[in-house]
Write a protein that binds this DNA or RNA. Sequence first.
DNA 1: AGCCCCTTTTCCGTCCAGCGGAAGGGATTT
DNA 2: AAATCCCTTCCGCTGGACGGAAAAGGGGCT
Lengths: 284, 284
Amino acid sequence: MTVLADKSLEPHRLTSAQRVLSILGVFDTENLALSLSDISRRTGLTLSTTHRLLNELLRWGALSRHSDGKYSIGLRILELGTLAPQGGQLREIALPYLHDLQHATRGNIHLGVPEGHDVIYVESLRARDTVPVPSRLGGRWPMHATGTGLVLLAHSSQEFQEEVLASKLRRYTDHTLTDPDALRHFLAEVRKSGVAIVQSQLTHDAMAVAVPIRGPRDRVVAAVGITVPLGSPSPHSLVPALAATSRSISRALGAPSAVTDAGVPRQTAHWQVREVKYSSSAGR
Amino acid sequence: MTVLADKSLEPHRLTSAQRVLSILGVFDTENLALSLSDISRRTGLTLSTTHRLLNELLRWGALSRHSDGKYSIGLRILELGTLAPQGGQLREIALPYLHDLQHATRGNIHLGVPEGHDVIYVESLRARDTVPVPSRLGGRWPMHATGTGLVLLAHSSQEFQEEVLASKLRRYTDHTLTDPDALRHFLAEVRKSGVAIVQSQLTHDAMAVAVPIRGPRDRVVAAVGITVPLGSPSPHSLVPALAATSRSISRALGAPSAVTDAGVPRQTAHWQVREVKYSSSAGR
DNA sequence: AGCCCCTTTTCCGTCCAGCGGAAGGGATTT
DNA sequence: AAATCCCTTCCGCTGGACGGAAAAGGGGCT
């Protein structure tokens, strides 16, 4: 427990909004239910402040409380989350195609979108009879360590790619691509071939195939991927099915390049999230 | 849902936490992307306050911003939402069984949990070739108007049931059950038979069959339902499959009554959310 | 062009709401 | 019984959040 509050010369200059958010932020996959004092310790907020805020969050439905007194994320947050355009909305459109893909291939299917240096799985369909991969709906993984992530990275801006390559790239297995030069090479391949095929990036016994999905201005907005057990027949045989799925979804999203015949032009909603720049240093 | 700003003589006595939450609260299925001034108007907050809070939410990832300047719910919220024990966790456990159920029956499958007077769909699997029902993942519907909701209501406490029956029960179609006495009768039937079969509660052309799912102390924690087109062969033929699915999920959740043989006792997590009572009046 | 209206952004002085300390009440352990 | 934890409530003080105002941007219309 390295929870030692650094009370040297930084007496927690937080705005009240940040306090609220910091409470929500203490929940993660390993901490699904926390007590008042847990939360107080982990946020660094005083007990009374934490207590008051927890009650406000509870009343609103952002948190729920269990019979043992612990707090968890509430359903209202789940509900809210489905309103994220790159999340619930995209999922809604893509789901039928993903189902078809799963029927056809019997692999684990992922639909990933970029956030920060990570991919977030907006949908994760698991096959019953294949390798269990560590991928949940809502899961977050570094881009360099997943098939879908590498596809998204390959189609990001040059600066963004370099920014990611310059960061610390965690090695999950001894096959994980972490060398910047090797990655640059690989990303170029992905751009050229339109597909990423990788082995054992995250766990030893799996391989992944992923392709991009395009939205309105033909921008890459997401990626679909299949994960299959390591020694599977031929990952290349999965490419056509993936490509077809990607094309269908892209068309449904209104990607110009995917629109072949005179289909009904779908409503083009608010895709393509602007990269917002903050004064990353200088407090406010 | 009393969103009408009562600007008579109430100069917005809001806590700062409430201000933050009220911003998140303005997003719904009809308002996926809103501008600063939209949000300011709808929350009743001043422009400058809204502006500041939006930036804080943006920086944290609770919101995202589009190229047209509008704001939407961010992926971080989606991610958070999956941490809700009654949501993402339950979904995780139930999903394979729900898939099986869909294969077997080819209907629209719903997994609902109670929140307030409503059901929230924690999973929604749509069949391609059947009636489109208005049910999204994360969707919220009044209990009296859905099959899953009626099941959950039937297994709630007596007081809660009366509380719901006493509230205004919206009529969606002319078949929607809204008469308290008729509902009481129906709920008793559901308790006795263990299944709810209803017609055209929400839309005219559908019928639904739903059964409860039990968790640890055999408490009803969720409900599974199938929705099929109105004149389908026999809804009763769906009951066995539903019952089997329910039992499988209940067992996986650790419901005593569903544990038949010496299966591995699952970890019993924090189910059964306590109903927390607030001093509902007197704003401090 | 120029004009007008609407939106977003920034600045700054005031004031009160949110903060944290402290104390009280349970529950469980030594 | 004392000690230790956790949760809850109360209250006085202060600094940060608030809102007014004005500047900076952005279309659309004549």
